[in-house]
Write a protein that binds this DNA or RNA. Structure first.
Ligand SMILES: NC(=O)c1ccc[n+]([C@@H]2O[C@H](COP(=O)([O-])OP(=O)(O)OC[C@H]3O[C@@H](n4cnc5c(N)ncnc54)[C@H](O)[C@@H]3O)[C@@H](O)[C@H]2O)c1
Ligand SMILES: NC(=O)c1ccc[n+]([C@@H]2O[C@H](COP(=O)([O-])OP(=O)(O)OC[C@H]3O[C@@H](n4cnc5c(N)ncnc54)[C@H](O)[C@@H]3O)[C@@H](O)[C@H]2O)c1
Lengths: 219, 219
DNA sequence: GGCAGATTGTGAAAAACTTAACGACTATCT
DNA sequence: AGATAGTCGTTAAGTTTTTCACAATCTGCC
């Protein structure tokens, strides 16, 4: 299973959850079939790209017909491992961390925030959005063996230190919201989401890349 | 100025704010010069890529020496228009919106959230993080002519409706945090930041693309 | 049963992006 | 002064991703 999976381009892999969500929507609406063109309009991805993406998994559709929503859904559910839940920890229950805890990532999602951690005694012991907030000293004990990935929303000065501890505790992926570019061993995957940079980049594009008719949109 | 700017690859443009931030840090630390290799370690971008990126703007460095931090900083400040402030509005003062309001985007940044808007009467009239919260009915009046971009943090059901009103009011860029893929006229730029998808994609990569020594990290 | 129209899957081309490699140059040490 | 250890800018190669365009083939209808 894993050998063939490796053939799937990373760009495609990143779009899979997006496809999954929209197929899910269609299914809830009772739609039976969908074409790459329709899907394209909904998710704002070129229809040829969608067909190409799907084709990496074999022939999911039927010529002249399109894709069967039910079949597509069950296929993606399997492919995205929607049936097993991945446990996640969140570190840093501040403004951003609290917002995430209130948000139910489980909805349409195979991930669950099991624990949150903070160094602030006022927050420890509370429960936010159904997630218990633990003291950061308990990090290693709670995470070890159980938690696959971590969401990092601590102040940037603390980012590297916490990262090292997460790595020590066996976490294999980190979603880093701090502006710090953290250093990790090679087998650990880090995705950076840098909100200030996103905003600045948008503004830069507005000024320097005025959109003409027919131009591209970004992710 | 704009004609030549268009030669800069989008991938490069997205990295500029990142470079700017780190150059700023170096400058604060009193560092005089920096090499592409050092910068590479700090921002986790290949040093060849950095040299290539910088070279789109001409010869910013000196062979055998590196880059002068002071010069680099002033160059990027100019290029990223750090001297003029771009006014931004935030729509939807919920969990996520509130977190953003508390965060000072002005710090190291040329953007300022001028107003926030919400439909909830309890929130209207308050001030969060120094930003006044207005009623959504005032959107058109406040935004018109004054605001360049908007941060969208409303429930996804409201996203398209608010988007249409933003477009009507002359906003030219939207940072969309809702899962809805909004439709806009061609001259409007939308960047989607879809946090659920980011988390799901990370998990997918962990399962299907285990990192070997020497492999790549994602943004 | 057959035909018009729709839509896929994909080969091939193009575009976009990254990386390697190296000539030219700087700074510093002996 | 000459040797040594960097370092840039850039050319060229490599890689990844997107897009075009169309034969193959299925649907839906008559
Ligand atoms: N809030 C935003 O909109 C926003 C935007 C962009 C980036 N960020 C980044 O996200 C991160 C969090 O931002 P925030 O606004 O939520 O900050 P915050 O100060 O509100 O929250 C940080 C939390 O981390 C906790 N903390 C501090 N040190 C800790 C440690 N060593 N171990 C465990 N917990 C610790 C604090 O007690 C606090 O609760 C920051 O790095 C910030 O730069 C935030
Ligand atoms: N909170 C998260 O961590 C998170 C994560 C991923 C995605 N999102 C997305 O971000 C968006 C906001 O999430 P949230 O958790 O902040 O939701 P929320 O419900 O806490 O906040 C939404 C806010 O928008 C306001 N609102 C509703 N309709 C409005 C309208 N027509 N005009 C103006 N304001 C209106 C509400 O009063 C509320 O204050 C949602 O689309 C959500 O899916 C949030």
């Amino acid at each position: 299973m894993d050998i063939e999976q490796h053939k799937i381009p990373q760009a495609t892999a990143k779009r899979l959850p997006l496809y999954y969500r929209f197929i899910n929507n269609l299914h809830s609406q009772g739609k039976q079939r969908v074409s790459s063109k329709e899907l394209s309009e909904a998710v704002k991805v070129d229809s040829a790209t969608i067909r190409r993406d799907f084709s990496y998994f074999g022939a999911l559709g039927k010529k002249g017909y399109g894709y069967n929503v039910e079949y597509l859904l069950s296929f993606f559910r399997k492919t995205l491992d929607q049936d097993e839940i991945t446990k996640v920890a969140l570190i840093g229950v501040g403004n951003l961390g609290t917002a995430f805890l209130h948000y139910n990532f489980m909805k349409n999602n195979n991930t669950k925030i099991e624990y949150a951690f903070d160094s602030n005694a006022d927050k420890v012991g509370t429960e936010i959005g159904g997630v218990p907030v633990k003291h950061i000293d308990e990090l290693e004990d709670m995470v070890k063996g159980d938690i696959t990935a971590a969401i990092l929303t601590v102040p940037s000065a603390a980012a590297q230190g916490i990262t090292d501890r997460l790595v020590q505790s066996g976490v294999s992926g980190i979603l880093n919201f701090t502006p710090a570019r953290i250093t990790v061993p090679e087998h650990i995957r880090v995705h950076h989401i840098d909100l200030s940079i996103e905003l600045q980049a948008l503004v830069y594009f507005l000024k320097h890349y005025p959109l003409e008719a027919g131009e591209e949109q970004e992710e």
